[in-house]
Amino acid sequence: MRPTALSWVPAALAAGFAFLYLPILLLVLFSFNESRLVTVWAGFSTRWYGELMSNGRMLDAAGLSLSVAAVAASLSAVFGTLAGYSMGRFGRFRLRTLFALLLLSPMVLPEVILGLSMLMTFTTLDRLVGWPAERGFLVIAFAHATYGTAFVAVIVEARLRGLDPALEEAALDLGAGPVRAFARVALPLLLPAVVAGWLLAFTLSLDDLVVASFVSGPGSTTLPMLVYSSVRLGLSPQINALATIMVLAVVMLAFAGARQSRNTA
């Protein structure tokens, strides 16, 4: 293609990136603002980070969110890998269409539907067997694992498609049963995808407001729930500081992940 042709296209890309990143950059910039008025610059300060770090409710919520995310991501990794492997390697089984649809649904259905459905399940379960009477940590983690599973499965299945099926056949040929073939050959080769899926499920859980709002009982407030109730009341420099920390953590994680995948590729 000649350089003059459609030359506005790269400019559109630059504009698109500006659109994506400018709001985040402003957010980060004003987290270092001295003033309580978030939109008026009054000099550099880190006081909001200090206040954030001594905000007990915020720290509790962050702690809950992180542990929920860790459990949800781990559950997702286990079942997502099983589901992705089932889809990718055992292509033709009965009810496969239903299986695929159940796997797809949590990814695409609106969160309000998912949240509502999870709560209905937990209350019905409580009625039937008396658990979970208090919907806390574990309930939120299970709810998050339902859609985390779907994302892990998609990533695992995608990676599986790039793996020669003869590798597992070779393992079977060399005396390994299916479980051993999976554990010794498929799993090590899928590991980058499982790790990426775990990270995605972790982030999704950490980010979720809607599902957690539906399922969590009184007394269990996740970080997004706290941020949401604070944000509804207006802008808060502490939220800017929190956002900056989250953005920084994500950027570092993402770069580490990208380097990792480059090295293993």
Binding site: D164, L167, E169, A170, L172, D173, G175, A176, G177
Partner: peptide, 15 residues
């Protein structure tokens, strides 16, 4: 099952 047979395979892709 393949893992119980006294035969072994050299795969086309080597695997």
């Amino acid at each position: 099952a393949p893992w119980l047979r006294p035969v072994n395979t050299v795969f086309q892709s080597y695997a």
